[in-house]
Simulated assay, not measured.
Amino acid sequence: MKVVIAPDSFKESLSAAEVAAALAEGWRLALPDTEVVELPLADGGEGTTQALVSATGGSLEHKEVSGPLGKPVNGFWGRLGGKRAVIECAAASGLDLLSRGERDPWRATTRGTGELILEALDAGMTEIIIGLGGSATNDGGAGMLQALGVRLRDENGDDIAPGAEGLESLASIDLSGLDKRLRGVSFQVACDVDNPLTGEQGASAVFGPQKGADAALVKRMDACLARYGEAITHCIGEKVDTIPGAGAAGGLGAAFLAFLNASLKPGIEIMLDAVDIDSHLEGAALVITGEGRIDSQTERGKTPVGVARRARMHSIPCIAVGGAVPEDPQVLQTLSHQGLKAVFPILPGVTDLDTALANAGLNLRLCGRNLAAFWQLAAIQPAD
């Protein structure tokens, strides 16, 4: 029997490769003769660069760049062969680069992401895949644009401050200094969400709380991004703020759409094609996927649903595991319609977040073992 284990990372705990390895180890405890294929994935967030580099036989390039709060961090980007590159904003502007106490979406900047793009340009890259997930920012990509030569000015003509804070005083956008090499670059943006820039489903309201924003700050940042959206429209003569994905990575999606002629595509689709998942699914009896938190956002194009849809095309049942899973039966039913036949929590009992994160590997192994034992007991057959 063949089982494909294709999870995303469990944020702040384990990489996708570690998740896959733990589940595989647990599965083999109950069914040691199973052919287990470990296929770690990402959907545009952390791990995207490493996964694509591994899939293409490329290489990682490291560069010290500005971190989310301006302090230098060891950023990286990937060469994928020829003039193709991959950059994940999480490598320079990611939430995992900050401790929980440091999270500050009001001041966090995407400048480091722009600096990584400059590195790729210096290396002669002309096709760049961008992963938008896992950001600590809510600046609409303003920092990235400034790194690439764009001037964002206040009413006095001075450059605005970093972060969402600067957008509060934004009066105009000047593209005259934008790096001219960008005209010859195509950007394919791996985007795991379809949120607009502002509003109830916008960047600030949906993702701001995860990045450290309280209700008052969410409202203030949403107003800042609305101001930013108006400035974009005035600058280019087009509205991008309502385009699905414009709100990804704290509005970074809007910057790519407006100024870098980028195309947004579900990150998981880019990944699945890059790792040639269809060939790995041949002959499989079951697919196991998962991520740290499975909820209503999962159906918007994140890894578990992307994997489930591809498995369904091959008539292979797909189940998911998560550190946190939906408590709403309707959400579970919706995920079922997307191809996830069942969703299992990995936690064995009530615990606090720190303990859950620390014990994720053990809990995944236990979950993997129990899934294999249940599969054997129930004699589940592949779906028609």
Rank of each mutant, 00 (worst) to 15 (best):
M221Y: 09
M221E: 02
M221N: 03
M221F: 03
M221K: 03
D222R: 06
D222C: 08
A226K: 15
A226W: 01
A226I: 10
R227C: 02
R227I: 04
Y228H: 08
Y228Q: 11
G229D: 10
G229C: 02
E230V: 15
E230D: 13
E230Q: 15
E230M: 07
A231E: 09
I232E: 01
I232A: 06
I232N: 05
T233H: 07
C235P: 04
C235K: 03
C235L: 02
I236S: 09
G237H: 13
E238I: 06
E238Q: 15
K239T: 12
V240L: 11
V240I: 15
D241E: 14
D241L: 13
D241Q: 13
T242C: 05
T242Q: 12
T242K: 09
I243T: 12
I243R: 12
G245A: 12
G245I: 07
A246Q: 08
G247R: 02
A248Y: 08
A248M: 09
A249N: 05
A249T: 13
G250I: 07
G250K: 09
G250A: 12
G251E: 10
L252T: 15
G253N: 05
G253S: 09
A254Q: 01
A255E: 07
L257Q: 05
L257S: 04
L257V: 11
A258R: 03
F259N: 11
F259D: 06
L260A: 13
L260F: 10
N261H: 10
N261A: 13
A262D: 03
S263R: 15
S263F: 01
S263M: 10
S263E: 15
L264F: 10
L264R: 00
P266Q: 08
P266V: 10
P266D: 01
P266F: 01
G267W: 02
G267R: 02
G267P: 02
G267D: 07
I268T: 06
I268D: 07
I268G: 04
E269H: 07
E269D: 13
E269Q: 14
I270T: 04
I270L: 08
I270R: 01
I270H: 08
M271P: 01
L272A: 11
D273W: 01
D273P: 12
D273M: 07
A274D: 10
V275Y: 04
V275G: 11
V275E: 10
D276Q: 13
D276I: 04
I277W: 04
I277K: 07
I277T: 14
I277S: 00
D278W: 10
S279C: 13
S279L: 15
H280G: 10
H280N: 05
H280D: 12
L281Q: 08
E282D: 15
E282C: 11
E282I: 14
E282V: 15
E282W: 11
G283S: 08
A284F: 09
A285V: 00
A285W: 02
A285D: 14
L286I: 02
V287K: 09
V287M: 11
V287R: 00
I288H: 08
T289A: 13
G290Q: 06
G290D: 04
G290M: 01
G290N: 03
E291H: 00
G292M: 05
G292F: 00
R293K: 09
R293P: 00
I294L: 02
I294H: 06
D295A: 00
D295I: 00
D295M: 00
